[in-house]
């Protein structure tokens, strides 16, 4: 390679490495804050701050959804299926994808009583898309669904 080109290439590699290292360090330093939500083990384990606006997430525990008959109040439990869970109270319309076993994100405040008072409920779906007629097969395989 021509020495002039080689030196330009080396300079460019140097600049790029430096910039990449700077970005990597910044992302590392900010790592905790780049997470969108607290998973159930952090909420249950007391790592999530109490009384400030945060987001938390988990899967809706089967059989935990309680709707008030005369209002939009709803209570449910979010779990990671690995022993950690926390209760959520919400008043409002739930997203269409809300169902038992679904990944859910809640925004609001964690109360001192351990109940998360949600102001907003969002549904998180995964990348496992499936036509409806294949659902019974997946139910049998996973065994974790509630049969819908």
């Amino acid at each position: 390679m021509h020495p002039k080109r080689r030196s330009r290439l080396l300079t460019l590699v140097f600049v790029l490495t430096g910039a990449a290292a700077a970005v990597a360090l910044m992302l590392r330093a900010a790592n905790e804050n780049l997470n969108l939500f607290y998973p159930p083990d952090q909420v249950a384990g007391g790592e999530a701050p109490v009384g400030v606006g945060i987001r938390a997430g988990g899967m809706v525990l089967e059989g935990s959804v309680n709707r008030a008959p005369d209002s939009l109040d709803v209570a449910f439990v979010l779990t990671d299926y690995q022993g950690a869970d926390f209760r959520v109270a919400y008043s409002g319309i739930l997203p269409d994808l809300f169902r038992e076993g679904q990944g859910i994100l809640v925004r609001g405040q964690l109360g001192a009583d351990g109940i998360f008072q949600a102001e907003e409920v969002l549904a998180k779906h995964d990348e496992n898309y499936m036509p409806p007629e294949l659902m019974p097969l997946a139910d049998g395989a996973a065994g974790a669904s509630d049969g819908r």
């Binding site: 970005v23 992302l27 790592n31 780049l34 997470n35 969108l36 939500f37 998973p39 997430g57 994100l105 969002l122 998180k124 779906h125 995964d126 990348e127």
Partner: peptide
């Protein structure tokens, strides 16, 4: 960063 964002951090966006 875009590509691995869904693996490095908790996100609302689903995986690849």
């Amino acid at each position: 960063v875009i590509k691995y964002s869904v693996e490095w951090w908790t996100t609302l966006h689903q995986g690849a």
